[in-house]
């Protein structure tokens, strides 16, 4: 095992690996945010009075949680570009070849998966807010928007935080799958390095350690956020 391979600069792969880790973090964070937006929407659908909306959200979470992420990635990777070209041609009359950027493809795939898991988390958190709080808000004359913004959202965020922390850990690990379609994040960078130096163990163990570091640091961040969010809550 040749550790000088991991040096900084032109001679070593250390800086490339760290940039790869940054890319992992960037794609994980954007997929996570997309996932929370999707999750909030799907949770609202699951809690709605309309049977069709509930049914649609159920289909979405069942499919995404029951099918391997890799399969979803292949679907979007091979099918997303064709869909985009059909829309561009049919709606805008644009006939040139266009394709989805690989970052966007990855973000959509991982975001869809994060969305399905956060749907359940957010739905549970909404149900955890006591009904009396909403009634009290209505009694003091708050309108629908104000009730949502002042009463529902802050409490849902607090109840959902531990679950969303788990979703973040899942999302971070799932980004490694995007390497199979060629986004140069830490896993892909390790494969490239392993291929050109014939030292696969050195590179994959580096990726392993980088993931461990990212997961540990972000986990600590989430624990802090939980303490902060619960600072006003009385505990026995």
């Amino acid at each position: 095992m040749d550790l000088t391979l991991l040096g900084w600069g032109d001679r070593g792969w250390g800086d490339e690996m760290v940039f790869g880790a940054m890319m992992t973090l960037a794609v994980a964070a954007s997929s996570y945010l997309l996932g929370i937006v999707i999750g909030a929407g799907a949770a609202a659908m699951k809690l709605s009075h309309w049977l069709v909306l509930r049914w649609l959200a159920d289909v979405y979470t069942t499919i995404i949680r029951g099918i391997p992420e890799l399969l979803v990635i292949y679907l979007v990777f091979f099918g997303g570009g064709a869909l985009l070209r059909t829309i561009a041609k049919g709606v805008f009359g644009y006939g040139e070849f266009i394709d989805l950027p690989i970052f966007i493809t990855g973000m959509i795939c991982i975001g869809l998966s994060a969305g399905a898991y956060s749907t359940e988390v957010i739905r549970g958190a909404v149900l955890a807010v006591p009904r009396g709080q909403i009634e009290a808000a209505r009694a003091v004359g708050m309108g629908k928007v104000l009730r949502f913004r002042r009463i529902l959202v802050p409490q849902v965020a607090r109840y959902a935080l531990p679950g969303l922390g788990n979703v973040w850990q899942l999302t971070l690990k799932e980004t490694s799958l995007i390497s199979v379609i060629g986004l140069v994040e830490v896993m892909r960078q390790a494969t490239v390095g392993a291929g050109s130096t014939k030292e696969p163990f050195t590179f994959y163990i580096t990726a392993f350690v980088l993931y461990l570091g990212l997961a540990s640091i972000s986990n600590r961040g989430f624990l802090r956020a939980e303490t902060w969010a619960n600072r006003g809550v009385r505990t026995s």
């Binding site: 690990k173 896993m187 390790a190 696969p200 163990f201 994959y204 163990i205 392993f208 993931y211 540990s216």
Partner: peptide, 16 residues
């Protein structure tokens, strides 16, 4: 804390 994909690659390719 680490992705399964890294674990698989570490064992399959890394052992080489």
């Amino acid at each position: 804390s680490t992705p399964l994909l890294v674990q698989i690659f570490l064992i399959y390719y890394g052992s080489g």
